[in-house]
Design a protein around this nucleic acid. Structure first.
Lengths: 133, 133
DNA sequence: TGCTATATAAGAGCGTTTCTTATATACTTC
DNA sequence: GAAGTATATAAGAAACGCTCTTATATAGCA
């Protein structure tokens, strides 16, 4: 695979952006330096990176695809309020036994735990607005 | 919420369909009996059911939204080949400890394990085509 | 330098989801 | 039972994300 200015910029943007960006967010992000990169190039490049194992596509309940440059084994917290996705690490999760009936009927290649709920910032936002005695 | 013929048909279709259908699949499914139901009604109704906790939206890596009427605590197998999603149950998964640093910064309301790999049918399809000595 | 393979930009096209508006239906009140 | 009110639906338009097509540009190679 050729290294082009666009691809460097896209990969750098995914790393810098941090919060599991969408193709559209990457597109806007790199527009500061390279205003002529098309959204199609961003999408195609992210897809190529995914095929190469350079980044993951984050699980989600619809909405635009989000990308994740973290290649360590990790898991996700999804905030129901703000939509933020936070990485976390857990040996217990990584080593969790897989039920025998699953092992018989399925070759497991990846394991991901998804916890949904409310993140600290949304908790605090809630406290600030609703706690006056 | 009012019970209408459309809503009954849509809920019945989700239950009968079994394999985590999309709105479009539900739309086609009920068209046999009710050919004038619009895709918008199907989408809106599925969304309402989701808000009421009657069904879940399945986690996925893009593509159309898929719905799940199974309200028991369960987890999912995703086949990378055919895209099928299979429910499974696991006490180990349900009781898996949550890391303390997560508990401090996040209120966990739902827990879902997602295993990705190859399902039995795709395994067999592969054997059948590729095993002749 | 010329050739070939790969990459990109721009616009078109497609599928999914949502919005808008008019009509239809069920429930409530009198 | 009739009129009024709130909710639901159908149809089409629109928005959005993603992919495809085609022409152009670029890098690597002979």
């Amino acid at each position: 695979m050729r290294i082009t200015p666009q691809r460097s910029a896209i990969y750098k943007a995914v790393l810098e952006h941090g919060d599991h960006p969408t193709a559209s967010e990457i597109h806007k992000w790199i527009a500061r330096d390279m205003p002529h990169v098309s959204i199609d190039t961003v999408n195609r490049t992210l897809h190529s990176f995914h095929d190469m194992g350079l980044l993951n596509i984050v699980e989600g309940e619809g909405g635009p695809r989000r990308f994740d440059p973290n290649t360590r084994s990790h898991h996700h917290l999804h905030c129901d309020r703000c939509g933020k996705i936070i990485d976390f690490y857990s040996d217990a999760a990584d080593n969790m036994p897989i039920p025998p009936e699953v092992q018989n009927d399925f070759i497991v290649e990846r394991k991901r735990i998804v916890l949904s709920g409310i993140c600290r910032e949304c908790m605090n936002a809630n406290d600030a607005s609703g706690s006056g005695t």
